[in-house]
Design a protein around this nucleic acid. Structure first.
Length: 300
DNA sequence: GTCCAGGAAGAAA
DNA sequence: TTTCTTCATGGA
Protein backbone atom coordinates (compact mmCIF):
# COMPACT_ATOMS: atom_id res chain seq x y z
CA UNK A 1 0.00 0.00 0.00
CA UNK A 2 1.45 3.32 -1.04
CA UNK A 3 1.57 6.18 1.38
CA UNK A 4 0.87 9.68 0.20
CA UNK A 5 2.89 12.64 1.26
CA UNK A 6 2.20 16.34 1.15
CA UNK A 7 4.96 18.93 1.31
CA UNK A 8 4.24 22.13 3.21
CA UNK A 9 6.95 24.59 2.23
CA UNK A 10 8.61 26.87 4.75
CA UNK A 11 9.54 30.50 4.35
CA UNK A 12 12.39 32.17 6.18
CA UNK A 13 14.07 30.60 9.21
CA UNK A 14 12.21 27.39 9.99
CA UNK A 15 13.20 24.52 12.25
CA UNK A 16 11.16 21.36 12.40
CA UNK A 17 13.29 20.32 15.36
CA UNK A 18 12.16 23.36 17.37
CA UNK A 19 8.51 22.57 16.63
CA UNK A 20 9.12 18.93 17.49
CA UNK A 21 10.73 20.01 20.73
CA UNK A 22 7.83 22.29 21.66
CA UNK A 23 5.30 19.55 20.94
CA UNK A 24 7.19 17.21 23.26
CA UNK A 25 8.50 19.02 26.35
CA UNK A 26 8.08 15.87 28.40
CA UNK A 27 4.38 16.31 29.10
CA UNK A 28 1.82 13.53 28.79
CA UNK A 29 0.24 14.80 25.59
CA UNK A 30 -2.63 12.67 24.30
CA UNK A 31 -3.42 14.35 20.98
CA UNK A 32 -0.15 13.60 19.25
CA UNK A 33 2.70 11.14 19.59
CA UNK A 34 6.35 12.06 19.59
CA UNK A 35 8.72 9.73 17.74
CA UNK A 36 12.35 10.43 16.81
CA UNK A 37 12.22 13.15 14.16
CA UNK A 38 8.50 12.63 13.79
CA UNK A 39 5.24 13.98 15.16
CA UNK A 40 2.34 11.57 14.65
CA UNK A 41 -1.19 12.89 14.94
CA UNK A 42 -4.70 11.89 14.09
CA UNK A 43 -5.76 15.03 12.27
CA UNK A 44 -9.44 15.96 11.96
CA UNK A 45 -10.23 17.14 8.42
CA UNK A 46 -13.54 17.98 6.78
CA UNK A 47 -13.05 14.90 4.59
CA UNK A 48 -12.45 12.67 7.64
CA UNK A 49 -9.61 12.05 10.06
CA UNK A 50 -6.17 11.08 8.77
CA UNK A 51 -3.37 9.56 10.80
CA UNK A 52 -0.35 11.55 9.73
CA UNK A 53 3.39 11.58 10.33
CA UNK A 54 5.07 14.96 10.13
CA UNK A 55 8.78 15.06 9.37
CA UNK A 56 11.47 17.46 8.36
CA UNK A 57 11.80 18.05 4.63
CA UNK A 58 14.39 20.13 2.76
CA UNK A 59 11.58 22.44 1.64
CA UNK A 60 9.82 22.56 5.01
CA UNK A 61 7.54 19.84 6.37
CA UNK A 62 6.58 16.51 4.87
CA UNK A 63 3.20 15.16 5.98
CA UNK A 64 2.77 11.46 5.29
CA UNK A 65 -0.74 10.05 5.43
CA UNK A 66 -0.55 6.68 7.19
CA UNK A 67 -4.28 6.04 7.33
CA UNK A 68 -7.32 7.73 5.91
CA UNK A 69 -8.32 9.10 2.54
CA UNK A 70 -5.61 10.22 0.12
CA UNK A 71 -7.69 12.03 -2.50
CA UNK A 72 -6.82 15.52 -3.67
CA UNK A 73 -9.39 17.20 -1.40
CA UNK A 74 -7.94 15.46 1.65
CA UNK A 75 -4.40 16.40 0.69
CA UNK A 76 -5.43 20.02 0.26
CA UNK A 77 -7.20 20.01 3.63
CA UNK A 78 -4.16 18.41 5.26
CA UNK A 79 -1.89 21.05 3.77
CA UNK A 80 -4.17 23.77 5.12
CA UNK A 81 -4.30 22.14 8.55
CA UNK A 82 -0.53 21.88 8.94
CA UNK A 83 -0.11 25.44 7.71
CA UNK A 84 -2.61 26.58 10.32
CA UNK A 85 -1.05 24.46 13.06
CA UNK A 86 2.68 25.05 12.61
CA UNK A 87 2.79 28.00 10.19
CA UNK A 88 6.02 27.05 8.40
CA UNK A 89 5.06 29.47 5.61
CA UNK A 90 5.23 32.45 7.95
CA UNK A 91 8.57 34.22 7.60
CA UNK A 92 9.82 35.34 11.03
CA UNK A 93 12.66 37.54 9.84
CA UNK A 94 10.90 40.83 10.77
CA UNK A 95 10.38 39.47 14.29
CA UNK A 96 14.02 38.43 14.54
CA UNK A 97 15.07 41.91 13.50
CA UNK A 98 13.12 43.27 16.47
CA UNK A 99 14.57 40.70 18.89
CA UNK A 100 18.09 41.62 17.85
CA UNK A 101 17.48 45.20 18.93
CA UNK A 102 16.67 44.26 22.53
CA UNK A 103 19.88 43.36 24.29
CA UNK A 104 18.36 40.84 26.70
CA UNK A 105 16.60 39.02 23.86
CA UNK A 106 19.21 39.28 21.12
CA UNK A 107 20.33 35.71 21.70
CA UNK A 108 16.93 34.30 20.78
CA UNK A 109 17.02 34.25 16.97
CA UNK A 110 20.06 31.98 17.13
CA UNK A 111 19.03 29.96 20.18
CA UNK A 112 15.47 29.20 19.06
CA UNK A 113 15.90 29.69 15.33
CA UNK A 114 12.87 28.61 13.34
CA UNK A 115 10.43 28.07 16.20
CA UNK A 116 6.89 28.93 15.15
CA UNK A 117 3.79 29.68 17.15
CA UNK A 118 2.32 26.20 17.53
CA UNK A 119 -1.42 26.70 17.18
CA UNK A 120 -4.55 24.93 18.33
CA UNK A 121 -6.68 25.04 15.17
CA UNK A 122 -9.85 23.88 16.99
CA UNK A 123 -11.21 26.89 18.88
CA UNK A 124 -13.27 24.78 21.27
CA UNK A 125 -10.17 22.77 22.13
CA UNK A 126 -8.19 25.96 22.73
CA UNK A 127 -10.85 27.31 25.10
CA UNK A 128 -11.26 23.99 26.88
CA UNK A 129 -7.51 23.75 27.31
CA UNK A 130 -7.34 27.25 28.75
CA UNK A 131 -10.07 26.36 31.27
CA UNK A 132 -8.34 23.12 32.21
CA UNK A 133 -5.01 24.89 32.69
CA UNK A 134 -6.34 27.68 34.89
CA UNK A 135 -4.31 27.93 38.07
CA UNK A 136 -2.90 24.41 38.05
CA UNK A 137 0.46 23.09 37.01
CA UNK A 138 0.88 21.79 33.48
CA UNK A 139 1.59 18.21 34.52
CA UNK A 140 -1.77 17.99 36.22
CA UNK A 141 -3.45 19.90 33.38
CA UNK A 142 -2.27 17.33 30.83
CA UNK A 143 -3.58 14.55 33.02
CA UNK A 144 -7.02 16.16 33.17
CA UNK A 145 -7.01 16.68 29.41
CA UNK A 146 -6.19 13.04 28.83
CA UNK A 147 -9.13 11.93 30.97
CA UNK A 148 -11.47 14.22 29.04
CA UNK A 149 -10.17 13.06 25.66
CA UNK A 150 -10.16 9.36 26.48
CA UNK A 151 -13.71 9.51 27.83
CA UNK A 152 -15.42 11.74 25.23
CA UNK A 153 -13.13 11.97 22.19
CA UNK A 154 -13.58 9.77 19.12
CA UNK A 155 -11.17 6.83 19.01
CA UNK A 156 -9.36 5.24 16.08
CA UNK A 157 -7.32 2.07 16.24
CA UNK A 158 -4.25 1.57 14.10
CA UNK A 159 -1.34 -0.81 14.41
CA UNK A 160 -2.37 -1.80 17.92
CA UNK A 161 -2.43 1.82 19.07
CA UNK A 162 -5.41 4.00 19.90
CA UNK A 163 -5.54 7.55 18.63
CA UNK A 164 -7.99 10.16 19.82
CA UNK A 165 -9.56 13.31 18.52
CA UNK A 166 -10.41 16.13 20.89
CA UNK A 167 -14.06 15.72 22.00
CA UNK A 168 -16.83 17.43 20.05
CA UNK A 169 -18.63 20.21 21.95
CA UNK A 170 -21.86 18.17 21.77
CA UNK A 171 -20.21 15.34 23.71
CA UNK A 172 -19.09 17.64 26.54
CA UNK A 173 -22.33 19.63 26.49
CA UNK A 174 -24.27 16.55 27.53
CA UNK A 175 -21.65 15.12 29.89
CA UNK A 176 -22.63 14.30 33.45
CA UNK A 177 -21.02 16.91 35.74
CA UNK A 178 -20.43 14.32 38.45
CA UNK A 179 -18.33 12.33 36.02
CA UNK A 180 -16.07 15.32 35.46
CA UNK A 181 -15.88 15.93 39.20
CA UNK A 182 -14.83 12.32 39.67
CA UNK A 183 -12.02 12.95 37.17
CA UNK A 184 -10.76 15.71 39.50
CA UNK A 185 -12.10 18.63 37.51
CA UNK A 186 -13.12 21.24 40.06
CA UNK A 187 -16.74 22.26 40.31
CA UNK A 188 -15.96 25.48 38.50
CA UNK A 189 -13.94 23.90 35.71
CA UNK A 190 -16.83 21.48 35.22
CA UNK A 191 -19.37 24.30 34.95
CA UNK A 192 -17.16 26.31 32.62
CA UNK A 193 -16.40 23.39 30.31
CA UNK A 194 -19.99 22.25 29.95
CA UNK A 195 -21.22 25.83 29.54
CA UNK A 196 -18.75 26.65 26.79
CA UNK A 197 -19.46 23.30 25.12
CA UNK A 198 -23.16 24.14 25.09
CA UNK A 199 -22.49 27.48 23.42
CA UNK A 200 -20.49 25.72 20.70
CA UNK A 201 -22.95 22.84 20.36
CA UNK A 202 -25.85 25.23 19.84
CA UNK A 203 -23.90 27.10 17.20
CA UNK A 204 -24.02 30.36 19.17
CA UNK A 205 -20.22 30.52 19.15
CA UNK A 206 -17.72 29.08 16.69
CA UNK A 207 -14.52 30.03 14.94
CA UNK A 208 -16.67 31.23 12.05
CA UNK A 209 -18.91 33.48 14.17
CA UNK A 210 -15.81 34.98 15.75
CA UNK A 211 -14.08 35.59 12.43
CA UNK A 212 -17.25 37.24 11.15
CA UNK A 213 -16.93 39.96 13.80
CA UNK A 214 -15.47 43.23 12.52
CA UNK A 215 -12.75 43.89 15.08
CA UNK A 216 -10.32 42.18 17.39
CA UNK A 217 -11.98 43.91 20.33
CA UNK A 218 -15.37 42.45 19.34
CA UNK A 219 -13.83 38.98 19.17
CA UNK A 220 -12.21 39.41 22.56
CA UNK A 221 -15.54 40.46 24.04
CA UNK A 222 -17.42 37.55 22.45
CA UNK A 223 -14.92 35.24 24.18
CA UNK A 224 -14.91 36.91 27.60
CA UNK A 225 -18.72 36.89 27.54
CA UNK A 226 -18.42 33.11 27.90
CA UNK A 227 -18.50 32.15 31.57
CA UNK A 228 -15.09 30.83 32.56
CA UNK A 229 -13.24 32.70 29.82
CA UNK A 230 -11.44 35.72 31.25
CA UNK A 231 -9.05 38.07 29.58
CA UNK A 232 -6.14 35.64 29.83
CA UNK A 233 -8.05 32.82 28.15
CA UNK A 234 -9.50 35.09 25.48
CA UNK A 235 -6.08 36.31 24.45
CA UNK A 236 -4.68 32.79 24.64
CA UNK A 237 -7.40 31.50 22.31
CA UNK A 238 -7.04 34.43 19.90
CA UNK A 239 -3.33 33.76 19.74
CA UNK A 240 -3.38 29.96 19.56
CA UNK A 241 -6.51 29.33 17.51
CA UNK A 242 -7.16 32.43 15.42
CA UNK A 243 -3.43 33.06 15.16
CA UNK A 244 -3.84 36.73 15.97
CA UNK A 245 -0.25 37.77 16.50
CA UNK A 246 -0.96 40.92 18.47
CA UNK A 247 -2.52 39.23 21.50
CA UNK A 248 -0.77 38.83 24.84
CA UNK A 249 -2.11 36.71 27.72
CA UNK A 250 -1.44 39.47 30.23
CA UNK A 251 -0.66 38.32 33.73
CA UNK A 252 0.40 34.88 32.59
CA UNK A 253 2.54 33.33 35.31
CA UNK A 254 5.15 31.93 32.95
CA UNK A 255 5.34 35.10 30.91
CA UNK A 256 5.97 37.22 34.01
CA UNK A 257 8.64 34.83 35.21
CA UNK A 258 10.39 35.00 31.84
CA UNK A 259 10.26 38.80 31.80
CA UNK A 260 11.77 38.86 35.29
CA UNK A 261 14.45 36.35 34.37
CA UNK A 262 15.54 38.56 31.46
CA UNK A 263 15.59 41.66 33.64
CA UNK A 264 12.94 43.26 31.44
CA UNK A 265 10.71 44.14 34.39
CA UNK A 266 11.58 44.96 37.98
CA UNK A 267 8.61 43.13 39.51
CA UNK A 268 5.42 41.43 38.40
CA UNK A 269 3.41 44.65 38.49
CA UNK A 270 5.88 46.67 36.43
CA UNK A 271 3.33 47.42 33.74
CA UNK A 272 5.21 50.43 32.45
CA UNK A 273 8.18 48.36 31.34
CA UNK A 274 5.90 45.70 29.92
CA UNK A 275 3.96 48.14 27.78
CA UNK A 276 7.17 49.71 26.61
CA UNK A 277 8.52 46.34 25.55
CA UNK A 278 5.30 45.28 23.85
CA UNK A 279 5.24 48.51 21.85
CA UNK A 280 8.61 47.58 20.36
CA UNK A 281 7.09 44.30 19.15
CA UNK A 282 3.96 45.74 17.58
CA UNK A 283 2.39 43.16 15.30
CA UNK A 284 4.58 40.41 16.80
CA UNK A 285 3.43 40.47 20.41
CA UNK A 286 2.30 36.85 20.37
CA UNK A 287 5.62 35.71 18.99
CA UNK A 288 7.38 37.57 21.77
CA UNK A 289 5.27 35.59 24.24
CA UNK A 290 6.05 32.31 22.46
CA UNK A 291 9.78 32.94 22.57
CA UNK A 292 9.67 34.02 26.22
CA UNK A 293 7.77 30.82 27.07
CA UNK A 294 10.36 28.91 25.09
CA UNK A 295 13.09 30.46 27.22
CA UNK A 296 11.58 29.01 30.41
CA UNK A 297 12.62 25.50 29.45
CA UNK A 298 16.13 24.20 29.20
CA UNK A 299 16.77 22.76 25.79
CA UNK A 300 17.36 19.04 26.00
C1' DG B 1 4.30 21.97 55.78
C1' DT B 2 4.78 25.78 52.29
C1' DC B 3 4.35 27.93 47.94
C1' DC B 4 2.81 28.25 43.46
C1' DA B 5 0.92 26.75 39.08
C1' DG B 6 0.48 29.03 31.25
C1' DG B 7 -7.00 32.19 36.20
C1' DA B 8 -11.89 33.50 36.82
C1' DA B 9 -15.90 35.12 39.17
C1' DG B 10 -18.11 37.42 42.70
C1' DA B 11 -17.77 40.23 46.76
C1' DA B 12 -15.79 43.86 49.18
C1' DA B 13 -13.29 48.05 49.62
C1' DT C 1 -12.37 50.96 39.55
C1' DT C 2 -9.24 48.28 42.13
C1' DT C 3 -8.37 44.81 45.43
C1' DC C 4 -9.47 40.78 48.14
C1' DT C 5 -11.57 35.91 48.62
C1' DT C 6 -12.75 31.57 47.11
C1' DC C 7 -12.32 27.68 44.32
C1' DA C 8 -9.29 23.08 44.54
C1' DT C 9 -5.46 20.07 43.60
C1' DG C 10 -0.91 18.34 42.48
C1' DG C 11 4.02 19.06 42.05
C1' DA C 12 8.37 20.76 43.79
Amino acid sequence: MQSRSVIIPAAGPFSFEECHWFLDRGYDECLHTILPGTVRKLIPLSTGPVLTDLRKHPAGIEAVILEGKTDAATEAALHAYVADWLAPQHDLQPFYDKLTKVKALAYMPAAYSGLRLIGIPDLFEALAWSIIGQQINLTFAYRLKRRLVERWGEKYMSGGNTYHLFPQPSAIATADPSELRAMQFTGRKTEYLIGVAQQFASGAVSKATLLALPTLEARRKALTDLRGIGIWSANYALMKSLRDETCIPHGDAGLLNALLAHGLITDKSDNTSMEKLYRRFKGWESYLVVYLWRSLAVKA
